[in-house]
């Protein structure tokens, strides 16, 4: 296991991350999804040592967590925390000095691929270019675990696609893994192997992506068929002017009772309806 989190708890005023447990295997991409304030960034900060857990433990690369293991982790945060007055070249020099496995050739390759203006100051760059720079840094020291907090926000669709391709290439050798928190669930549908869905500090579901996508179906039916019996068989649903739309694990059973249109649910639909059910 590359990452094993056990009963991780973090208390804040007004928010508690409650006994979060999940693990990540080598060679897989794990997507951390959930709405704003669900606890995704808190989990990432706990792994990176920026926050101290109230309770619980986690292991990295099979060992008890310690600072030196961060040498094997590449990270990209949602916000830019690099000093804006420094040039990319300076920031690269700073980062480089901390990693024993820094590979200048790899960095230069990504700098060219992303068209990074290394002589320019960070403040002169767009948020997308800043993100690309952070990605280049994270990918340039042969990290075995990449931890990304909203890495694709601020990237244009072309770059987003390229980024996802890079991640697929990165884990090809089967030794590296990626933990990826995002709101853009379509990104995860393309590349994730495993989904951890979190809300209000609790894990709602934690399963392989394909299993999750196979488990739920999105069904559509007539308004008058939205009975309490059907509602009980659904994980959540919406009544529209012309009918209903709902998420269910029992599409076959419902189809025997009423006329429905059934289709594969997207991660976004699953997230939306499961949260709606939870809120009710």
């Amino acid at each position: 296991m590359i990452l094993e989190i056990q009963s991780l708890r973090k208390e804040f005023k007004g928010f508690t991350l409650q006994n979060v447990s999940f693990s990540m295997e080598e060679g897989c991409i794990t997507g951390l999804i959930g709405r704003n304030g669900a606890g995704k960034t808190t989990i990432i900060k706990l792994i990176m040592g920026l926050l101290l857990p109230t309770a619980g433990t986690f292991k990295l690369f099979g060992e008890e967590n310690r600072v030196s293991l961060r040498d094997r982790i590449g990270f990209v945060y949602e916000e830019n925390y690099f000093p804006e007055t420094s040039t990319l070249k300076q920031l690269k020099s700073i980062t480089k000095s901390f990693y024993t496995e820094w590979d200048e050739t790899v960095f230069q390759k990504y700098a060219r691929r992303f068209n990074l203006p290394l002589e320019k100051k960070l403040k002169a760059l767009s948020s997308g270019t800043r993100k690309k720079f952070s990605l280049a840094l994270a990918l340039s020291h042969h990290a075995e675990l990449l931890i990304f907090d909203e890495p694709t926000s601020g990237l244009d669709p072309v770059m987003r696609r390229e980024f996802l391709d890079i991640l697929k290439e990165y884990i090809e050798d089967g030794r590296r893994s990626v933990l990826f928190s995002t709101h853009i669930t379509t990104d995860l549908e393309q590349i994730a192997d495993y989904i951890v869905f979190i809300d209000e500090g609790k894990i709602i579901t934690d399963a392989p992506k394909d299993e999750l996508l196979d488990k739920y179906r999105l069904i559509k039916g007539r308004k008058e068929d939205w009975t309490s019996e059907i509602q009980e068989l659904c994980c959540g649903g919406k009544l529209h002017e012309f009918g209903f739309e709902a998420l269910t694990e029992h599409a076959d059973l419902i189809a025997k009772k009423i006329a429905i249109q059934s289709e594969k649910a997207s991660l976004e639909n699953i997230m939306f309806y499961l949260l709606e059910k939870k809120d009710v």
Binding site: Y77, Y81, F82, P83, T85, F98, Y99
Partner: peptide
Amino acid sequence: MEMNAESDKILNSFPAK
């Protein structure tokens, strides 16, 4: 600069005690 950029978050994410 460190306070304005919150660059201590980056520094503490590096493998530095």
